[in-house]
Design a protein around this nucleic acid. Sequence first.
DNA 1: TTACATGTAACCATTATAGTTACAGGTTAG
DNA 2: CTAACCTGTAACTATAATGGTTACATGTAA
Lengths: 145, 145
Amino acid sequence: MSISSRFSVGIHILALLEIDKTEVNTSENIAMSVNTNPAVIRKITGMLKKAGLVNVQPGIAGAKLAKDISEITLLDVYRAVNAVQEDELFTVHAKPNPDCPVGRNIQSSVEIQFTAAQRALENELENRTIRDVVDDILNKEPLES
Amino acid sequence: MSISSRFSVGIHILALLEIDKTEVNTSENIAMSVNTNPAVIRKITGMLKKAGLVNVQPGIAGAKLAKDISEITLLDVYRAVNAVQEDELFTVHAKPNPDCPVGRNIQSSVEIQFTAAQRALENELENRTIRDVVDDILNKEPLES
DNA sequence: TTACATGTAACCATTATAGTTACAGGTTAG
DNA sequence: CTAACCTGTAACTATAATGGTTACATGTAA
């Protein structure tokens, strides 16, 4: 299957908080932009908060960035929203036959390859920040002000 | 979610076909090594066949490698078994609000980043072959012969 | 105290996975 | 030719994650 859209929604939220930083971004406002339910936004915002990427407080309207967006990598968001659970991007079949030379060795041999591939993905995500996304958006459509 | 174990099973099958190349590998034999149902093996073997990685024929017992294993990349297997459907590793939320500057631009901006990350993963998989896996297995446990 | 926001729990429909059974159809040995 | 055996595939199941929805407890401040 593919990686949860929580990831892209998380990026959306952070980009929105930057671009609309002068406004009060309630879960309802954000939900309008993302086009989903406010509760979904609160769930994801909660995860971003746990990761120290945003500040939100019960009873107080609006989420705010906790860091400069150039210091929030896509990997931070990826991990924050559990885009992939347990950081296990690949699944290895669980119980190959230990009585077979291939069966009893395949898991660790495959794991080596999977780990390398996963690391390649994560390195790429680590080299990119919310700033890159925001710049791209503003480049397409400069804000009037 | 994570990537289907069809991928690791596909690798398992190909490695097994190499290491047991003198034997007749029926779906039942392979299923013993993988520890699953023969029908599952036949399904995956069918996908590998479609991709030109193995030869199998109805009524004839045994699957055989269609290529040298040094010419089968992990990316070939990944694609063959539809480890990720439609080659869309990441999901982008579908209908952001077009009436919002962020909403109407987020998809393409995020897509740029996701494409780069996906490509990094695929490049890594392309640089690794079934040979690497087989060598690793034989390295751990040399075959008696 | 009233109005409104966040945090969460409970629940649902949808979808992919992995496994299972069953059987149609191809192949070969006797 | 038929019996035995194999592959290909359809149909069905249980399990699990996703994304959405409603409802409500809790916190804040005018």
